[in-house]
Design a protein around this nucleic acid. Structure first.
Lengths: 139, 139
DNA sequence: GAATACTTGACTATTTTAGTCGGGTATATA
DNA sequence: TATATACCCGACTAAAATAGTCAAGTATTC
């Protein structure tokens, strides 16, 4: 059970951005250097963040990306959703009528995984980008 | 972020077993049929559960596996550990001196992932096999 | 002694992940 | 207006993890 790098990097990159004055475009190149994340990979990630309205882009020289909202208003759950990163504990279909394992009803542990999924989502739902303790050190 | 089938099947299989009188060996063949899990795969899983002292085996005809403890005393976290299923949210080394991304210190979001890991482990730590609502239906 | 059921390591197909590549387009500034 | 910077975007790919299967056993009961 592990988090993929895309979502992790997304949070890292946004946390990096949030250290700078809002409306000041931050280039992916800079983030790439500071956080040691491949520039090309970051581009992929930011296209998704843009589509989900978390950042906006400024093209051209001195361009970059800008947070669309105050970090206080950006929930981590949004970031994960932007990257299609779902917490999927089960193969079981949500639709209980179909059944989980070809059988007629929910599988024996269905409730458990549902509960876990809600539990984890809850964590991200309650965390804001601004909650990350941003030490102004060398990172 | 998803759970692998091995851990999921392990929980399903043990939940299945716990419906039967303790000390009554349950064969993998039966579990396989009831839960629609490959027999060969179950064998792999149960070897690990056995090594971790969660079940014991009874060989021969009418043999099978038996829970070594009351379901009330089997934490889900033990089952996951038995299958080497760890909650790994980060690539960062635990050892904070090494640094996470080749840089000198912890990465900017290190605390967050640690927190998440503890949060999730906590879920499994507090759930017992006996907590699974076992409807005596067709599963 | 035949059938049942656990034991074990090695193997393999498929899927997912973690990126890279190549060729764009838009904008600022010199 | 040329050029460098930086975003845009789909397609591709190597490597790792997952989800199993296979083969060849051993132990026990009826």
């Amino acid at each position: 059970m592990k988090l993929n790098t895309k979502s992790r990097y997304a949070v890292m990159a946004l946390a990096d951005m949030s250290k700078f004055p809002i409306n000041n475009p931050v280039s992916l190149r800079d983030i790439s250097l500071r956080q040691s994340i491949s520039l090309l990979y970051l581009e992929q990630i930011f296209l998704k963040l843009k589509k989900s309205d978390i950042v906006k882009s400024v093209r051209g020289t001195n361009g970059g990306y800008v947070l669309k909202r105050d970090p206080k208003n950006i929930k981590l759950s949004e970031i994960f959703q932007a990257l299609d990163q779902k917490v999927k504990t089960v193969g079981c279909k949500k639709d209980s009528k179909k059944g989980c394992n070809g059988k007629s009803a929910k599988c024996i542990t269905h409730e458990l995984w549902d509960e876990l999924e809600i539990y984890i989502n809850n964590f991200f739902e309650n965390k804001k980008l601004s909650d990350l303790s941003l030490n102004r050190g060398d990172n």
